[in-house]
Amino acid sequence: MRIPAAILTLLAGMALVLTGLWVGQNINLLPEDASLNAPVYDELFKVLFSIGTILLIGIAGLIVYSLVRFRRVNGDQGDGVAIEGNLPLEILWTAIPAVVVLFVGIYSYDIYDRMGGMAPLNDHSMHAMHSDAGDSRTWAGISPVAMEASTGEPPLPVDVTAMQFAFIFHYPDAGITAGELHVPVGQPVALTMKANDVIHAFWVPQFRLKQDVIPGQPTLLSFTATKPGRYPIVCAELCGPYHGGMRSTVVVEEPQTFADWVAQNSPAASPDAPTAVQS
């Protein structure tokens, strides 16, 4: 006895969905995650990856099946059946993608909110750390307000200057200027970024964060590192011939090591030493 086609289709659909879910959960295409944002981001990625896999395999399967099953046998000059449309079917495949993208949109909005992307630039209780925050020309990738809210700790302010072809980091509290970004693990860091010449972009793949650094308008980006280590800072916006070489490193350290580093490099500690510029 033949198994009814409806049942086979149902089984195929279930297998497809399971495969998609399995792929999304188990195939990791992302680099290490090293910030509070990163696991949240990875959650979204898994969902998108699952949906994408289901759609792609499903459609690829349909095409291959059609090409094989309905291929023209040699010598057959006939036509297929004249079916010109099917309204319920059309409504179905308008509705399903609409629901899917609506879900994806709302879900990613939620993710973005959890990453801190929707937070205001400054709440009024905040220290006047960013004098120009709130100016209509200051923009934020992730605002420090969000980071402070999620960790309860005041952020460590760092000024970033991007220029052809380097990043310079300045710690206003300690007075340090460096070519590498040192940050303590677990404490939020609030970057205020300015560009001197052309547009650059600050990107740390392991943090899943990127923000353009635009001349003429300061941008804010905040993050909280979660794993000690050295991660690349990559300039992601074409900025001239040496764009590819415009890289730096973010060094995430245990709070104690970080404190040592600050102490060693503060101009206050060794007043004669020239401002440390390392790279």
Partner: peptide, 13 residues
């Protein structure tokens, strides 16, 4: 996927 802001800020450019 790129249209989702949080996804795009990692992979943009």
């Amino acid at each position: 996927a790129l249209a989702q802001v949080p996804f795009d800020i990692h992979v943009h450019d």
